[in-house]
Design a protein around this nucleic acid. Structure first.
Lengths: 332, 332
DNA sequence: CTGAAAGCGCTAACAC
DNA sequence: GTGTTAGCGCTTTCAG
């Protein structure tokens, strides 16, 4: 019922090998026989079976993508960058959510290996030892997108989070603030604890401001958490006058928390964010924010992966993309 | 180098068939030999090759998902529902973006067929004749998620958009409005033109209000477009006092457009949205909105697809999920 | 430029 | 309970 390469060969009076050649664009085929084969292919509506091809050639032209949560706008943007470049290079993507659970990540890696993907892109807030170990045994190349492996063994694409955080906080210090809060997502995320927080401390230290542990809160990375965090922080007898938020949702939560309590932004408090998703412009005041080039990180990751899959030589396996601060209205 | 079922068979002194049986949980294996095989599998770190299995069994346990744009929060939510249920039933997902272009949708369908997916979930704002035709030739079951096929031939999961729109507009009419705008995404989307707009007209008609074409604008479905649309509408000599927005972004755009011009919501104008994404709570005032159960639509779609793939008999192929209006503060 | 033939790694009858 | 044996549909030497 389904038409195979054999059917085409028979109808066109050529061998399977020849059909295979025309299907794969092999130039060693006489134009006339190529045309003959193409005609039969069209007439029979022949469509190559990618599974059979994968088994024979040991290439599936699909890559596995392990992502914490595709419904999170942050990761969705990364995923789009990945998919666009994948399409450009004719790869398909198998997408799986890990919910940031190590056991699922491990299991998904095995699953991807079993599916014989040609490469893998992993996004994870915390690249643990077990993960690293399993990736070390990977039969295919892997690259981390927007995720950090502190051992520097797995190729990855990121920005300089520490420097970016440092600049963001400095932006607040320049405005005269000394009581600056750091409202972050969980410190289980390497980037939060070892990079953004480090950048925060560096900026304060440089300005001679002591770190007040009461001003750093690392809870959930969500809008509601931002509201709560503001409320807690505002109860302090020496409440912060400026906020460095780890994400747009957190920043918006802080702003709304403050506004709902009658404060004005940026007059009474200033807040700088770290993300610059489309949400950044959808609040009043609009968010001043470090811009995290999520789409680009995804795209560059996939591009790098294609190089590995083609066994091209790559110069830099750990790439740091540029960042900048988009000035809007939540900071004076 | 890679260990195959044959290696395991040899090491365990059994046949490939037996190894296959234990791998696939076939009960016809003596416990002792099962254990023996399992031990070898573990020792050799054997991992079944899904591609070979797919070729032999004609099942790939993967389903294709064609989505307009995964970076759009609306579709990302749908996708999450799909993926969760897929995982539950041990299916993997091949995800591709169509950017709502018919040519890409057509090409992606062919691509999915070629990859031998066991089923397909399609999201599309406009199910054209050509699409329908290609789906009619599909070798595998297809279900539409949050997308309408007006010929009712392809199974689909939706809510009653017309009724929901009707209720939303009625909610505004009850508050005394007679100048009610309908700010929509493009009318190329079936749901916008044939359902939401129809619901809008029905509600007006029932209240004896004539439809004023100047009050219906179907441009882009985006935040910026919402701002612009408000601005245009407000220039009318008899400007609208209430707005029925086709999406949260549009609603927020309208609200910010109005607020930036000094108007108050809901005092000066009222707006009701149609989506209820997480954004709905991230504005002031928070959006009163029809709740579109995106995650559920995705989940139910995938569940339905599993039934088709298992050749179970299904009672209803066209399912309509319930909806409701979430009352918040953008409507009095 | 084209064909023959040997697999790729696994499942699925069918025997025993 | 377990083994034998065909394929699944295609790519890939190797000849010629």
């Amino acid at each position: 019922m389904t038409v195979t390469i054999y059917d085409v060969a028979r109808e066109a009076n050529v061998s399977m090998a020849t059909v295979s050649r025309v299907v794969n664009g092999n130039p060693n085929v006489k134009p006339s026989t190529r045309k003959k084969v193409l005609d039969v292919i069209e007439r029979l509506e022949y469509r190559p079976n990618a599974v059979a091809r994968g088994l024979a050639s040991k290439k599936t032209t699909t890559v596995g993508v392990i992502i914490p949560d595709i419904s999170n706008i942050f990761y969705a943007e990364l995923a789009r960058g990945i998919e666009d470049i994948a399409t450009m290079y004719r790869y398909n993507i198998i997408l799986s959510n890990s919910d940031q659970r190590e056991d699922k990540e491990l299991q998904l890696l095995d699953n991807m290996y079993g599916k014989q993907v040609d490469g893998i892109i992993l996004m994870s807030d915390q690249v643990t030892g077990d993960l690293l170990k399993k990736m070390g045994h990977s039969p295919v190349p892997i690259v981390l997108a927007g995720s950090i492996d502190e051992t520097n063994i797995i190729p990855s694409i990121n920005i300089d989070y520490l420097q970016a955080a440092y600049e963001a906080v400095k932006r607040l210090i320049v405005n005269g603030h000394t009581r600056i809060a750091f409202v972050s997502g969980p410190f289980t995320a390497t980037i939060n604890q070892n990079y953004k927080y480090a950048g925060y401390k560096k900026a304060l230290a440089e300005a001679g401001i002591a770190v007040d542990e009461n001003l750093v809160v690392a809870a959930e990375d969500s809008y509601d958490s931002g509201i709560e965090d503001w409320s807690e922080l505002n109860k302090l007898e020496n409440a912060p006058t400026a906020f460095f938020a780890g994400s747009d949702e957190l920043a918006i939560g802080i702003i709304h928390g403050a506004q709902d309590a009658g404060k004005k932004v940026p007059e009474d408090i200033e807040v700088i964010s770290f993300e610059n998703s489309k949400l950044a412009r959808m609040v009043r005041p609009q968010l001043t924010s470090v811009v995290l080039p999520l789409y680009d990180i995804g795209a560059v990751s996939m591009r790098l992966l294609t190089k590995f899959m083609n066994k091209e030589t790559v110069e830099k396996e750990i790439v740091i993309l540029p960042h900048r601060i988009e000035e809007r209205d939540s900071v004076k």
